[in-house]
Amino acid sequence: MRIFPLVFLLFFPLLAGAQCFSSPGNPIGGTLNTGATKKGLLRMNTFNRYSFTRNYYEGSKKTENMLYEKAHYDYVGLLLAAGITSRLTFENEAGYFPFKTVYYNYPFSLYDDNKTGSGLSNWVTSFKYLIFAEDDKRFYLSASAGLKVPFSREFQSTNNVELPVDVQPSTGAYGGVFQLYVMKEYSFTGTRLFAVSRYEHNGENLKRYRFGDAFLQSLFYSRHLYLGNTPFPENWTVIMQVRFEWRDMNTVYLKTFPDNEWAKHTVTGTGGYAILVSPQLNYTIKSKWNLSLSGELPAYQYLNQKQLGRGWAILLNVSTDIQMWK
């Protein structure tokens, strides 16, 4: 039973998968943490996510590559959650991109082979409230609301040339994150079902560019592994996640010519939806430390006009709980 609260938080890095190259900022899911944290408990969670993509999509079909030949990034996230009361949890999340790189196709590669951004992404601070908890039936419902703050509003440049929006580490804009968590446990079978709904609203950055709002719906199924004669049979858990993601088109205000007035434009080559599958394997050490490894693949994606699509990703996660006060 002691494993349960620790395993819950392992769901969160699975959702750290909504980052694509048309939406810089934190890979979504950084603030995700199942249910409310117990009073006085400090939950620490760090993860590393590597993502790679090289295929363009027009609608749901692969198409010939355009500007970019391929793109990849690495993201390190840190989440701290503290249980203020038995129902209220305070969460903070920060993230850092060691690199975020696009590689250009020929003939663009004659001028620049690639462009790389790196640095702190966004900081998300939120409050989560346990709305409903029925311990007998092991059914829980929580909701959270948070504020997304960019670490920097300036745009990164290399060689005095501003990097494209796709490799900027931060959105450069404030935003809001709203989430709903529903969880049902089955103690006898060691399984649980879990659903997370997440809505993200993004504001305008200093260039008057706004990333489209996003909605994510994740469904999880987890089960303890009982492997018989293995040394630590009860310490392994498998989780399968299926996630639906929708993103609205980005917008930008541009000055009209020759009137020199601001006019709103929709960046039509952005936004779309995808269904992703993410299997995960967890290992618990002394009911205190959790290690997990997961992969992610798009099962289906539909992108507006032509865009660099979603590729594969791999995540490594380490987490622990510390009782700070009673």
């Binding site: 363009y56 355009m66 500007l67 250009y104 663009f108 001028y111 620049d112 462009k115 745009f155 440049s157 060689n159 005095n160 040339v161 501003e162 494209p164 929006v165 260039k207 560019y209 930008v252 541009l254 960046v267 039509t268 080559g269 507006n304 006009q305 032509k306 865009q307």
Partner: peptide, 21 residues
């Protein structure tokens, strides 16, 4: 700097590349 798109190269002469859409 550019409102949207990619600037390739550096110095007094650069190339501007528009996104596909």
């Amino acid at each position: 700097s550019v409102s949207l798109g990619d600037i390739l190269g550096s110095g007094a002469t650069v190339n501007f590349v528009a996104s596909p859409c």
